[in-house]
C-alpha cells in the first residue's frame, strides 16, 4: 500500500511539474501577452513596466527558471488580471471547484450507474429512452447545456440563474452561507454532471450486458437465483471495473467541463479562472491553474485506481495492495 501511494505521489509531482511548465512556456510562446489588457494604445512605458513586472522582458527559459525557483518556495507569482498573488487566487478557486466537482460527480454517479444498469439489463421502451437521453447529453456541448440551464432557471425562477452565493449571505453565518451555496449548486452541477452521467450510463449499460453473459451469471440463473439478485450481487460487481477505471478520467472531464460551465454560470472556480487567464495570457495565473489542475487530475487518478482495486481483486494483486 505504501509503495502504491509513494508511486502515485511521485507521479503527481511529475505531472504538476510538467503540466505547469508546459502551460507557462506555451503561454509565453503564443503570440501576444497579457499587456494587451492595457489596450491597443497604452503608452510604451506603461507596457514596458507591466512586462518587466511579469518577467516578460526576460527570455522564456530564463522566466521559466525564475518561476520554478519561486514556485519551490510556493510563490507562484502575481496575476496581472487580478492584481494579487496567484497562490491565494488558485487556492480559493480550487476550493469552489471542489465543492462543485464533488456534487457533480455524486450526481453523475447517482444518475448514470442505476440508469446504466436498467438500460443494460433490460430491453424495451425504458431502455431506449435512457439510451436516447444519454446520447443527447453526450452530444450537447457544455456551453449549450450551461446556457440552456441558465435560460431555464431565469425563465422559471426555480433556481438562481448564476453565481455561488447571494448578497444576502453577507449578513448571515455559516449556516446561511451553506444553505445559499446549496441553492446555487444545482445549476452548474447539473451542467457538469449530465455529460458525465451519460458516459457512466453508456459504460455501465455495456458492461452489465457483458457481465450478464459471464458463466457465473449463467450458473446463478441455473440455480434459480432471482434476476434482481443476479444483477445486484453478481453482474454489477463484475461490471464495475470499467466504471472505476473511468473515474480518474471523469475528474479530468469535470475540470475541462468546468472551464465553460463556471464561466457561463458565474461560478468562481478554477475552470473560470483558468479560462480567463488563458484568454488574457495571464502567464503566472495560467501556470498556477495548470499546476492545480495537474494535482487534481493526479488525485482523481489515484482515487480511481483505489476504487478499481476495491472492486476487483485482480487489480489488488497486480498493485500489491
Amino acid at each position: 500500500m505504501t509503495a502504491f501511494v509513494a508511486r502515485r505521489l511521485l507521479f503527481a509531482v511529475a505531472l504538476v511539474f510538467v503540466v505547469s511548465s508546459v502551460a507557462l512556456l506555451l503561454t509565453r510562446l503564443a503570440p501576444g501577452d497579457v499587456t494587451a489588457e492595457l489596450g491597443p494604445f497604452a503608452a510604451p512605458e506603461e507596457i514596458a513596466r507591466a512586462r518587466a513586472r511579469l518577467d516578460l522582458d526576460r527570455s522564456p527559459l530564463e522566466q521559466w527558471a525564475l518561476w520554478l525557483v519561486r514556485a519551490g518556495r510556493f510563490d507562484f507569482g502575481d496575476s496581472f488580471l487580478y492584481g494579487r498573488p496567484v497562490r491565494g487566487l488558485v487556492a480559493d478557486a480550487a476550493g469552489n471547484t471542489a465543492i462543485l466537482a464533488v456534487v457533480a460527480l455524486a450526481v453523475a454517479t447517482a444518475l448514470g450507474i442505476p440508469l446504466g444498469i436498467v438500460s443494460g439489463s433490460r430491453r424495451g421502451a425504458a431502455a431506449a429512452i435512457i439510451r436516447s437521453v444519454s446520447l443527447v447529453c453526450l452530444s450537447l456541448p457544455p456551453l449549450l447545456t450551461s446556457l440552456l440551464l441558465v435560460f431555464v432557471a431565469a425563465t422559471t425562477r426555480w433556481l438562481p440563474a448564476g453565481g455561488m452565493t447571494s448578497v444576502e449571505t453577507l449578513d448571515g453565518g455559516w449556516g446561511t452561507w451553506l444553505a445559499d451555496v446549496a441553492i446555487h449548486l444545482p445549476l452548474p452541477a447539473l451542467a457538469l454532471a449530465l455529460p458525465i452521467a451519460a458516459t457512466f450510463e453508456r459504460l455501465q449499460a455495456q458492461s452489465i450486458a457483458e457481465a450478464l453473459q459471464q458463466p457465473c451469471v449463467t450458473a446463478a440463473t441455473a440455480r434459480g437465483v432471482a434476476p434482481r439478485e443476479i444483477i445486484v450481487r453478481h453482474a454489477w460487481r463484475v461490471s464495475l471495473r470499467p466504471i472505476c477505471g473511468v473515474y480518474g478520467i471523469a475528474i479530468g472531464a469535470l475540470l475541462s467541463g468546468s472551464f465553460v460551465v463556471e464561466f457561463v454560470t458565474a461560478w468562481p472556480g478554477l475552470g473560470r479562472l483558468m479560462y480567463e487567464a488563458l484568454r488574457a495570457r495571464d502567464i503566472y495565473l495560467v501556470a498556477g491553474c495548470a499546476a492545480m489542475g495537474g494535482l487534481v487530475l493526479a488525485a482523481g487518478m489515484m482515487i480511481g485506481d483505489l476504487l478499481l482495486a476495491i472492486a476487483d481483486p485482480r487489480v489488488r494483486e497486480q498493485e500489491s495492495l
Binding site: S146, L147, V150, F151, A153, A154, T155, R157, A161, G162, G163, F263, V264, T265, A266, P268, R272, E276
Partner: peptide, 15 residues
C-alpha cells in the same frame, strides 16, 4: 455582480 459571460448576463437581466 461579476458575470463574465454576456449571454448569461442578458438572461439574468431578463430574469
Amino acid at each position: 455582480e461579476i458575470v463574465p459571460e454576456q449571454n448569461a448576463e442578458l438572461l439574468r437581466l431578463q430574469a
